[in-house]
């Protein structure tokens, strides 16, 4: 009888740990494991990532007004980030209509203009980019950029990003014909360099 009690105690403790450990990890994961990474961006005007988590009340209004359905809503698998908005630019990029920033009730998306938007920064992978490799005269990103000749310029027929002007909308990523096999990225990607300690 006593042995059985000990056994059930051990089993119970093991079970509790098994249940609680992921629970505890899950509870804190939200703070450390932000969904924001390459090509996974907050809508325009977003405050820094840690503030975003705190401010956003998950009301979904930014997403409802998005005419391109570019904004998706995360669910509980993203822990404390559940309900927050996200733009996956290679699926649907941000067309900078700025409707979402005008409806956010909490200031998680600040009411800013197109040019002040900094969702991230486009970075060209020179080893995959057709123009940089010298394979073809591809200039898709240059053609698609809403600030062509400003945010993306052509230098000797190769695209170059201007850090000061790129808003990180992801139109270039969405249009880029090259998908890099190893990591699923494109030859041009948006890095969320302005999201604070996001990734």
């Amino acid at each position: 009888m006593k042995r059985r009690d000990t056994l059930s105690l051990i089993l119970g403790a093991a079970l509790a740990t098994w249940l609680a450990a992921p629970g505890a990890a899950w509870a804190t994961a939200g703070r450390w494991f932000s969904p924001i990474r390459r090509n996974r961006l907050r809508p325009p005007g977003a405050v820094a990532e840690a503030q975003f988590l705190a401010r956003c009340i998950r009301c979904g209004r930014c997403l409802e007004v998005c005419p391109y359905h570019a904004i998706v809503m995360l669910d509980i698998r993203h822990a404390l980030h559940a309900g927050t908005p996200l733009i996956a630019v290679e699926n649907i990029p941000c067309y900078l209509c700025m409707k979402c920033v005008a409806v956010c009730p909490t200031g998680s998306l600040r009411p800013i203009g197109q040019k002040e938007t900094r969702m991230g920064l486009a970075v060209i992978d020179h080893y995959s980019c057709l123009a940089w490799r010298g394979d073809t005269l591809c200039r898709t990103c240059y053609d698609k950029c809403p600030f062509a000749n400003v945010a993306i310029r052509l230098e000797q027929l190769r695209p170059v990003i201007d850090e000061g002007a790129c808003v990180g909308c992801g139109l270039c990523v969405n249009a880029c014909p090259i998908t890099v096999a190893e990591d699923g990225g494109k030859a041009i990607n948006i890095e969320p360099v302005y999201a604070g300690n996001a990734a």
Partner: peptide, 23 residues
């Protein structure tokens, strides 16, 4: 837009008190 966390009727915006307080 929205539902009972924040709902907007035109430019009249409502925010659920607890959600707003938490934020």
């Amino acid at each position: 837009q929205g539902w009972y966390q924040s709902i907007a009727v035109g430019e009249l915006w409502f925010v659920s008190p607890l959600e707003g307080l938490e934020s």
